[in-house]
Design a protein around this nucleic acid. Structure first.
Length: 152
DNA sequence: GCCAACGTTGGC
DNA sequence: GCCAACGTTGGC
């Protein structure tokens, strides 16, 4: 089992939105970055644990946990011309993008803020705090995962 | 809303 | 295949 951090803009889709979905499960689609796509496609597995991260908001940080509740599958939103995620270069014969299902697991009692994570001497190697970390799907080590959980 | 830091595109 | 121009991300 592996650990991940996935970013979402809470104005678009927050941890509370996930908690209120049917079966507390939603398609995690719309990833349009190759590095993130490669993680989703090649590394993410059913049962993996995910830090749910809120970005582009007043207090960016980790707000809770989700579990990966499907294997990776073709991201259908790329074929939907009405979707903001439409990509004409992805075809059914040669799909370019993948998605997984995420299921709500827990909401933290507080936001573990980006500021706090950046300042923590135990987390200097974390992808999130490394320079120019714009990856919306990124790996988290077991050590980082356990340590961050203990911060809550 | 600004802008630094990346990523992608497309002409050559 | 290089790289300039453009687009996007995301913290501040």
């Amino acid at each position: 089992m592996a650990f991940w951090l996935m970013k979402s803009e809470p104005d678009e889709f927050s941890i509370d939105d996930l908690a209120h979905c049917e079966n507390q499960t939603e398609t995690w689609d719309g990833i349009r970055n190759y590095q993130a796509r490669n993680f989703l496609r090649d590394k993410v597995e059913l049962g993996d644990i995910v830090f749910f991260y809120h970005s582009s908001c007043k207090v960016p940080g980790i707000v809770g946990l989700a579990t990966v509740s499907s294997a990776p599958y073709i991201d259908q939103s790329a074929f939907d011309q009405a979707s903001t995620y439409f990509d004409g270069k992805s075809s059914i014969d040669n799909p370019r993008w993948v998605a997984v299902d995420l299921t709500f697991k827990a909401k933290f009692s507080r936001i573990i803020t980006l500021t706090e994570l950046k300042a923590d001497p135990n987390l200097t190697e974390m992808v999130l705090v490394s320079k120019g970390a714009r990856l919306s799907v990124q790996p988290v080590t077991q050590q980082e995962f356990d340590y961050i959980l203990s911060l809550e």
